[in-house]
Computed example of a mutant assay.
Amino acid sequence: MKNTYIVTGMTCNGCVSSVTEKISKLDGVVSVEVNLENKEAIIDSNHQINTLILQEALRPKYTITKKKTAQKEPLYLEDSFTDNKSKIEQLKPLFLILFYLFSSAILLHYKAWDIKEAMLDFMGMFYIVFSFFKFLDLKGFPDSFRMYDPLAKALPFYGWIYPFIETVLGLMFLMRIQIPIALIVTIIILGITTIGVTRTLLDKKSIRCACLGTALKLPMTEATFIENAIMLVMAGTMLIQILL
Rank of each mutant, 00 (worst) to 15 (best):
C12D: 04
N13Y: 11
G14V: 04
C15Y: 02
V16H: 01
V16M: 03
V16F: 00
S17G: 09
S18V: 03
S18T: 15
V19R: 14
I23D: 11
S24V: 07
K25Q: 14
L26Q: 03
D27A: 06
V30K: 12
E33I: 07
V34Y: 00
V34F: 00
N35C: 11
E37Y: 02
E40I: 09
A41P: 02
I43C: 11
S45M: 01
S45K: 07
Q48G: 12
Q48H: 14
I49T: 01
N50E: 12
T51Q: 05
L52C: 08
I53V: 14
I53E: 15
I53Q: 12
L54T: 09
E56C: 02
A57I: 12
A57P: 03
L58C: 05
L58H: 03
L58W: 03
R59F: 07
R59G: 03
R59S: 12
K61E: 09
K66D: 03
K66G: 04
K68I: 10
K68E: 14
K68R: 09
T69M: 10
T69L: 13
A70P: 00
A70W: 03
Q71V: 09
L77G: 10
L77A: 08
L77H: 07
E78G: 04
S80H: 02
S80R: 07
S80V: 03
F81N: 06
T82Q: 12
D83F: 13
K85F: 00
K87Q: 14
E89S: 02
E89Y: 04
Q90H: 01
L91A: 10
L91F: 01
L91N: 15
P93N: 07
L94I: 05
L94S: 06
F95R: 01
F95Q: 00
F95M: 08
L96N: 09
Y100D: 01
Y100S: 08
L101F: 13
F102S: 06
S103I: 08
S103D: 02
S103Y: 07
L107K: 04
L107D: 02
H109I: 02
H109G: 04
A112H: 15
A112Q: 10
A112S: 13
W113Y: 12
I115K: 10
I115L: 13
K116F: 14
E117M: 14
A118E: 00
A118Y: 00
M119V: 11
D121E: 14
D121Y: 12
D121L: 10
M123A: 11
M123I: 09
G124S: 11
M125P: 04
Y127M: 15
Y127Q: 13
I128M: 09
I128H: 07
V129W: 06
V129P: 07
F130V: 15
F132N: 09
K134T: 01
